[in-house]
Design a protein around this nucleic acid. Structure first.
Lengths: 230, 230
DNA sequence: GGTATTTCTGAACACTGTTCAAAATTATAA
DNA sequence: TTATAATTTTGAACAGTGTTCAGAAATACC
């Protein structure tokens, strides 16, 4: 009923026809589909077509679309080559590296974020990643709970920052669509916003993600210092 | 073709039947629908049924579902009773109040977040809110661009933190659904994570949102101090 | 060979957003 | 008053979605 494991998982001597698909193949194909045709094209039918298979077939490998999306996310996490706690440097350098890496991934592949905010729960790779992120703070005097707080805070910041980076810029000013008359009047009554937007557009691309990350990590540093020698 | 304004907007003496609906009524009904039956029940047809109207009728008030979702979000923002810069206290107290308020809203009405991460662009109320948030930093020595950076950083943090608060807790440990055997083995190889989760479950609900917010604002404070007297 | 077990198919179901000609309704001009 | 033009509403339709399920096809074990 809820096959979250591939059909021929354990051994190869179950009766019935050989499975022509696998969870891994489905995940890779789904990623390719989302990458090339957008996340809106990631439908069961299109995926089945790409795999030269009837739509219903997918349901022997995946319990539904939610499960598929979770599988895709978990596969992507598993494709990262280095876990956080294996990175070089201090805890702060490790966090900066992992955060920057995640942020790059989100910005380069915006469709991933759309999934991240819809999918709930986590797969094995996500769990492994989270555990590794916790180990980054082994040297510091933070408690178990504080470590989890910090990791989730940073992770949440990265996601929130990435989605704003992709959305607000062109959307607020009306980049793609022509600005509605309503919007024009609203902007007319928002002088500070217009000033800030034009200032940003004029100058070079100051990386406000790194700016925010520095702010956040400085705050974490304070907590660590306080916890280290009370 | 793209009616982002209500039909009988300007005056009441245009020919044709009196509009039985309005953008406001549609927004309120949509909010009620999402609130009571979940955001997945917010479909054009159900909304039309609730309004005792044919599905196609909605398209004279709203250009499509994207526009409807944006309208819902903008309406919610407009329902907030106080704009950030009208709150009492220092910039830091104002930011804390607005961030906490937003966070409460997201946690209390999780369906709002699901929209926030799908909808791009902003309506008049969102623009007004953003402008108000910028004015919070009028006393500080921050530049226009820095102010926008800070506001977006805080806003992104709030969203990211809220989505994690709603997702990771019960989902990771398998709150709703029974934990898959795969998950159990994955958790077996993640001792730090298990320790942190149990520690969190055992103790009282330490508000890790406020923890992260304090971290972030401490970092912002540093930047302001640096900008104030160089 | 027979049997049990599994995978795969193809059709169906109940939805979804969206479009569009025609009908119904109203304000203004003749 | 009647006619005209403009606008809203309708109901049906289209293409697409996730999901289910009886039956057909394929394989390992006895």
């Amino acid at each position: 009923m809820r096959p979250s494991t591939s059909p021929g998982a354990g051994r190869e001597h179950t009766p019935g026809p050989r499975p022509r698909l696998s969870r891994e193949l489905i995940a890779e194909t789904a990623i390719g589909l989302a990458e090339h045709e957008g996340v809106r094209a990631l439908t069961m039918r299109r995926l089945a077509t790409r795999l030269s298979v009837a739509p219903g077939t997918l349901y022997t490998y995946v319990s539904g679309k939610d499960d598929l999306e979770l599988l895709v996310l978990d596969t992507l996490v598993g494709q990262q080559d280095r876990l956080p706690h294996t990175l070089p440097g201090t805890w702060r350098e490790q966090v900066e590296a992992w955060a920057k890496n995640d942020w790059d991934g989100y910005v380069r592949h915006p469709w991933v974020m759309e999934l991240r905010f819809r999918v709930s729960g986590g797969g094995p790779n996500m769990i492994a990643w989270l555990d590794s992120a916790l180990r980054v703070f082994e040297g510091t005097g933070l408690s178990d709970r504080q470590r989890l707080d910090v990791v989730e805070t940073v992770d949440g910041f990265v996601r929130g920052s990435a989605v704003l980076h992709l959305r607000s810029d062109d959307a607020m000013t009306g980049g793609a669509t022509a600005p509605t008359p309503e919007m024009r009047t609203a902007l007319g009554e928002a002088p500070d916003l217009v000033a800030a937007l034009t200032a940003r557009a004029a100058g070079p691309t100051t990386d406000r993600f790194e700016f925010g990350l520095r702010c956040l990590l400085s705050g974490v540093q304070e907590v660590i210092d306080a916890a280290d020698r009370p």
